[in-house]
Design a protein around this nucleic acid. Structure first.
Lengths: 301, 301
DNA sequence: TTATCAATTTCAGAAGAATTGAAGTTGGTG
DNA sequence: CACCAACTTCAATTCTTCTGAAATTGATAA
């Protein structure tokens, strides 16, 4: 059976014009090269060089030089593609994330991730937690970032950070004058605006308050606008509030349990592609610190 | 270094869905296949299968299956082209031949030659001996068939057959009544038409007769027409006279030395391509018999 | 023509890689 | 939970390729 390695040797000899130099080039002795050539000629069925001084090719040798070069080039390229893919330097990565993370956390993370992987193709979807899970489950997204869900399904959840809920109200609201974290009892009588995230709060007091609420808003910008307009208060995870807004205040809640777990959502059954695995590792390493930093600046501002 | 053979094993396993069947298919034991796969994974830098039951590929495995299949296909095709060329099943063959051989001898020879080589491309030029030599020397033709020449040049001559000159005259000419081969002396006083081939006759008597000739014709058809019209006699190699012509007779010459050597013309320095070499061998084997047969039927007719 | 010399080939032994068969693991299934 | 088939591991073996020395070849100069 003819081997690609033999073609490599032949091409080197054809290019060198003699065995000795070619032998040096491939790191073998002249005798090894000579034997390889002989074997190649036997297997192909004809002489490749005009004389045993290897400076001129036969017609067969020329054909073999052309075809051999092309085979070598193509093989090496394929191998390099496979290696690049395995080492996640190429490939495609589809991320589904809840908007708070997609907006506040992912941009710098992705930037750093792609710095060493300029050839990787990324898609980023910002959708709510339920849809994140659905996209990952269906394989449309390689990896998801969402709030924790009880239902297992085909996906697995790995916590990354927890994000405490805070109260958002007009800055002239009486609660702002409280010099301490807000208790649920402080809110009795207040008008609460529900949102997609606040339903996750386990506290009975909150559930009761929430049940009385007449308005539900899913978009954070609209939510802030409503609060500002004086239609009520709302309770949101810290991370969803990007930056400060004029006229609204963010107050701490006394209930430490009022927080959401945000983490990675992945398919349980099929292994991630190399890029997805690399991103997963990167995310686990970097996102918690990034969130801490982001929440720090939020509080500081 | 990754080997094409390892890719072959991998592709077989990926297609079989398990190691055992693949091992049978490639004629190895399961353990050899397992080790090859492991080595491949190490060298590529990632797992190719989702589990150690080899029935589902990772993303990397899928990529490798695609690329590997293509590499294998392409390599095998290249090798088969090289082999086909070496065994002269493909390639191109350019033949330059004097018209007598091109017309009377080559057609059946070429047909038989190409019967087992339907992919070979052939070009056939019919030109005079000097030009045959020139075409071979310049490399335009791979092989030539021509009369012998003294000047060596870059070409080599290999005799194939000798072809006696004969006398062509009107069938009402008085020489036809001779019941014996014609002597040069019988021609004194006759009008000779010179032609491209007859100048090669060494005999002094002929040279003298020829010197008196006023007409030279290079085309055989025209030559026959002139003889028929009664403008004179001419002397031609047997093979140039294809079939019988009404009104003209072909007479034997007594001078046995009046013949031309026809043979192969080849370049001395560069080796022939496989097809050319195959044709050369075929020609050496078949042309003499073919000529004998052809001249036999000519004489018999 | 012969002598010379470097390149190449040949050869036998050495080194290295792949393969085998047996034993040990693993993971799925009844 | 035990079984079974598939797979992996390991050490020994076999096969291939490589090396270094010696022989051969062919080009160049004497």
């Amino acid at each position: 059976m003819i081997k690609l390695e033999a073609l490599r040797v032949f091409v080197t000899v054809a290019e060198s014009g003699n065995i000795k130099d070619a032998a040096d080039a491939v790191g073998r002795t002249a005798s090894a090269v000579s034997m390889t050539l002989k074997q190649l000629e036997d297997e192909i069925g004809g002489p490749l060089f005009q004389t045993d001084r290897k400076n001129s090719l036969t017609a067969l040798g020329n054909l073999m030089l052309d075809l051999g070069r092309e085979q070598i080039r193509s093989f090496d390229k394929s191998v390099s593609i496979m290696r690049a893919f395995a080492h996640s330097r190429i490939g495609s990565l589809s991320i589904a994330s809840v908007p708070s993370v997609a907006t506040n956390v992912l941009p710098p993370i992705l930037q750093r991730f792609l710095e060493t992987r300029p050839q990787v193709q990324v898609e980023l979807f910002d959708i709510d937690s339920a849809q994140v899970r659905r996209m990952v489950e269906s394989g449309v997204a390689d990896i998801g970032i969402a709030g924790e869900s009880r239902a297992g399904g085909g996906v697995e959840f790995t916590p990354l950070f927890s994000d405490r809920f805070k109260l958002l109200c007009r800055d002239d609201h009486e609660l702002c004058r409280l010099e301490r974290p807000v208790e649920w009892s402080d809110l009795s009588g207040a008008t609460l605006i529900r949102n997609g995230a606040s339903d996750r709060i386990e506290a009975e007091e909150h559930k009761r308050l929430s049940a009385q609420s007449l308005i539900t808003v899913y978009n954070v910008t609209s939510l802030v606008a409503l609060v500002k307009a004086g239609l009520g208060l709302t309770i949101l995870p810290s991370l969803t509030m990007h930056g400060a807004h004029d006229g609204v205040a963010v107050l701490e809640l006394a209930d430490a349990a009022a927080s959401r777990q945000v983490g990675l959502v992945e398919r349980r059954d099929i292994p991630p592609s190399p890029v997805a695995a690399a991103f997963r590792a990167f995310a686990v390493e970097q996102i918690p610190a990034m969130v801490a930093e982001h929440l720090g600046t939020l509080n500081g501002a």
